[in-house]
Design a protein around this nucleic acid. Structure first.
Length: 545
RNA sequence: GCCCCGCUAGCUCAGUGGAUAGAGCAUCUGUCUUCUAAACAGAGGGUCGGGGGUUCGAAUCCCUCGCGGGGCACCA
């Protein structure tokens, strides 16, 4: 029962279709949630899908499928309807599901979709040259929830932040700190925020004699010092939204291990490295169109060189089967280049999975990190709280640009959907206490057969859908499906609870201890599932509000 | 010029090629002496950006045009 009932129905459908004598490939039977009320819980267009192949009337096919299909455990009954086959979850199965989920201690929905696959998710890896702003928050929460999902579904996940330390931007950063140390303005293109002045003062204190060194010697020291301080700050910020990393992987480790050079050597052998205009380029052997510089004419490598080494590091040295990259959409042009680099290095392109998310804009105007004008993620958390920040980010598909309306975000009220879900959880927790106060002795086991009201079975019905959501969200790497599910489950919970407000014998806690116990079973099942879903979002599940 | 994302209710957004396109907010109308009203019940609100095409069936796939955002570095 721990797998999804949808999968069981799917398999039963295929078996039934085979029973009709269909051989070879079976087309997608389009099993999905029934969208029209009164037509059941799941629907398949099996009749329509098979009509051509069988050269028969879709309605007749659907009738035969519905007559012969057998869903395991009597979980669902089938009815043919105009070429469709509709499935209705049976009350008996829903009741058993309640007992199953209640005893599952929050593991319901967990499935082994990963078979212990080792994979790395790299996310949030912003140049450590300033604090995270509200755009970065999206990548951080998205990446984190993807990790939570993958872990929940049987993958071995490593969460990594790649710390740039040797590129042009971080050098400018170091030079900017150097300038502030000597009381002058940062150079053109440098970082002008006040935090750079603070870093300079901290460095003056922590690095004795730093002010006496010439820039060539001072800048690398100041840069690494400042990067470490920024990494500390970024760690603290992401911790506020319940994000932690397994590894903060510094770019300079790549250079020390010689991996970028090794990668370049390998690509030279495969014909993907060419010399032109004094620089080294990466590209297809017989095509200059898409070539990109790896080593500049001045001998300095580009970020692309370190990324090549980083690929070797992860796929060979550390042996990840897949690497998931979470990038903001302004990096989309980099995806084909990285994919072709993966292939040219001799790996399967599919092993590099890139999740792009659209930008986060402020209605007030654009952000500019270098100018030091931005709304930081810290400020956003201060204003609306960690839970709302995470829920708000995760609610949206990565493909949607977020137009951040600060005025709206700072108003705390019932327009904030996170409270709706948390309130459902708090109510369920509260009623448990109320039951214990009212009945000193409750039966050890619940008789779920006493759950007969439609609003009770509707809660169970929502629970039945949870494994489907987990499966879809995992395979598509789309965490935004979770908050939408949470809302649906919370709605069913609120209706169930409210039935007791309308009529007191529909309360959870009633005189009948057996009935109370059965309803508590439902409460526990729903509460565990809400908690699990909120955990996957990194949102708290309060016990009282 | 080329590439990517978006365009769905007044607003913000969901929506694996299936049946009558959904939710929240906002607006309007009801519901608390009894387990939490941060809740519940109901109402109104739509040329799914325009136009072609594929299909038994298109918000969904293809083509094209428009609008908005992002990217096309020896920045990352």
């Amino acid at each position: 029962m721990s797998g999804g009932v949808r999968d069981q129905i799917q398999q039963a459908l295929v078996d039934a279709v085979r029973g009709l004598g269909v051989e070879g490939d079976i087309p997608d039977l389009e099993l999905g949630r029934a969208k029209v009320a009164g037509r059941g819980d799941y629907a398949s267009s099996a009749g329509l899908k098979l009509a051509r192949q069988l050269r028969q009337d879709p309605k007749a096919i659907a009738v035969r499928v519905a007559e012969t299909v057998t869903v395991p455990e009597g979980a669902a009954s089938a009815q043919a309807d105009n070429g469709y086959v509709n499935f209705r979850l049976t009350d008996g199965w829903l009741r058993r599901l309640v007992a199953h989920v209640a005893s599952g201690a929050g593991r319901y929905g967990a499935r082994d979709l990963g078979r212990a696959e080792r994979l790395q998710v790299e996310f949030g890896s912003v140049n450590p040259t300033g604090p995270l702003h509200i755009g970065h928050g999206r990548g951080v929460t998205l990446g984190d929830s993807i990790c939570r999902l993958l872990t929940f579904t049987g993958h071995q996940v490593q969460r990594e932040y790649y710390v740039n330390s040797d590129n042009t931007q971080t050098r400018r950063f170091g030079a900017s700190v150097y300038a502030r140390l000597h009381g002058v303005e940062p150079p053109e293109g440098g970082y002008t925020g006040d935090y750079v002045k603070e870093l300079a003062e901290m460095a003056r204190h922590d690095l004795p004699g730093i002010g006496d060194l010439p820039e060539e010697e001072a800048e690398p020291k100041l840069r690494m010092y400042a990067i470490d301080r920024m990494v500390d700050r970024i760690k603290a910020t992401v911790a506020r939204v319940n994000v932690r990393y397994d590894e903060w992987y510094y770019e300079n480790r790549l250079w020390e291990s010689g991996l970028p050079q090794a990668a370049i050597d390998r690509l030279r052998e495969s014909g993907n490295i060419k010399e032109r205009e004094g620089a080294l380029w990466f590209g297809e052997p017989d095509d200059e169109e898409e070539d990109r510089v790896v080593i500049r004419a001045n001998g300095q490598p580009t970020y692309f060189a370190s990324d090549l080494g980083y690929l070797l590091n992860r796929f060979e040295q550390r042996g990840f089967n897949r690497v998931v990259e979470v990038w903001a959409a302004d990096h989309h042009g980099y995806v084909p280049r990285m994919k072709s680099a993966v292939a040219a290095l001799g790996f399967d392109e599919q092993k590099l999975v890139v999740i792009l998310h659209q930008m986060v804009n402020l209605k007030e105007g654009k952000m500019s990190k270098r100018a030091g004008r931005f709304v930081t993620l810290d400020e956003l958390i201060d204003r609306v709280g960690s839970d709302a920040v995470r829920y708000f980010y995760l609610l949206r598909s990565p493909d949607t640009t977020i137009e951040f309306d600060l005025e709206l975000a700072v108003t705390q009220g019932n327009e904030n959907p996170v409270y709706y879900a948390q309130y459902a959880h708090a109510r369920l927790t509260n009623v448990e206490g109320a039951a214990k106060e009212r009945h000193s002795q409750l039966p050890e086991n619940a008789n779920v057969g006493l759950l007969t009201q439609p609003w009770e079975l509707d809660v169970a019905r929502q629970l039945a859908f949870w494994p489907d959501v987990i499966e879809d969200a995992t395979l598509l790497l789309e965490p935004h499906r979770i908050p939408y599910y949470v809302h649906d489950l919370a709605t069913a919970v609120h209706r169930f609870y409210h039935a007791g407000n309308a009529q007191s014998d529909h309360r959870v806690v009633v005189d009948d201890v057996a009935l109370t116990r059965a309803r508590l079973e439902l409460c526990r099942a729903a509460r565990h599932t809400l908690k699990t879903a909120l955990d996957l979002m990194g949102v708290s599940a309060p016990e009282r509000m």
